[in-house]
Amino acid sequence: MKKVIIVDDEKAGRKLIKEYLKDFPDLILLGEANNGVDAVKIINEFKPDLVFLDIQMPGLTGFDVLTHLQELPHIIFSTAFDEYALKAFEVHAVDYLLKPYTKDRFKKAIDKIPTQIAENSAKELTNSLLMDSEKYPEKILVQYQNKLVTIAVDDIIRIEAFGDYSKIITNNKTFLSNYGISQLEEKLNDAIFLRVHRSSIININKIEELNKYGKSYDITMLNKDVVRVSRGYMETIKKLMY
Rank of each mutant, 00 (worst) to 15 (best):
K215W: 08
V229H: 05
E208G: 07
T126G: 12
N205H: 13
L222R: 07
T67C: 07
S166N: 03
L129Y: 11
A12R: 13
K135W: 07
G36R: 01
S230I: 02
G163C: 12
I75G: 00
T150P: 11
L129Q: 13
E186A: 15
D95Y: 00
D164T: 05
P100I: 08
L240Q: 11
A118F: 06
P114R: 06
E185L: 14
K3P: 00
A33V: 09
I207M: 05
Y242E: 11
V153T: 07
Y101D: 09
L194S: 00
K173D: 15
T150D: 09
T126M: 15
I237N: 00
I202K: 01
D111P: 03
I181W: 04
E134Y: 09
Y144F: 14
L66I: 04
L176C: 12
N211I: 15
S128M: 11
G163F: 10
G62Q: 03
A191D: 14
L66S: 01
L98G: 00
L16D: 05
T61A: 08
N172M: 08
H92G: 06
D54A: 04
R228K: 13
K11A: 13
K3Q: 03
F193L: 01
I192R: 01
V153L: 07
L141D: 02
Y144V: 05
I192K: 02
V37L: 15
K135R: 12
K22R: 14
R198I: 04
L148G: 01
K107F: 11
M57L: 08
G31N: 08
Q56L: 13
Y179W: 09
V149T: 13
I5E: 05
L97R: 02
S166K: 03
V229C: 12
V37F: 12
D8W: 01
L60I: 09
D38V: 06
P137G: 02
G31Y: 09
S216K: 03
I201L: 10
D64M: 08
N205W: 05
A161Y: 03
E19Q: 10
S78Q: 02
P114W: 08
K215H: 15
Y101I: 10
K206H: 13
D38N: 15
I75F: 01
P100C: 13
I219P: 02
L29Q: 12
I169C: 04
F77N: 02
N171H: 12
P58H: 15
D132A: 09
I117N: 09
Y179H: 07
V91E: 05
K15L: 11
T61L: 06
K187H: 10
N172A: 10
T126D: 07
Q70G: 09
F63E: 03
K3A: 01
E45K: 15
F81N: 12
P137T: 02
K139Q: 14
F81G: 07
Y96E: 01
R14E: 08
K212L: 10
L66K: 00
K206M: 10
H68R: 09
N178M: 12
D8R: 00
I237G: 00
D64L: 08
R231T: 08
L222P: 02
K41E: 15
V7Q: 05
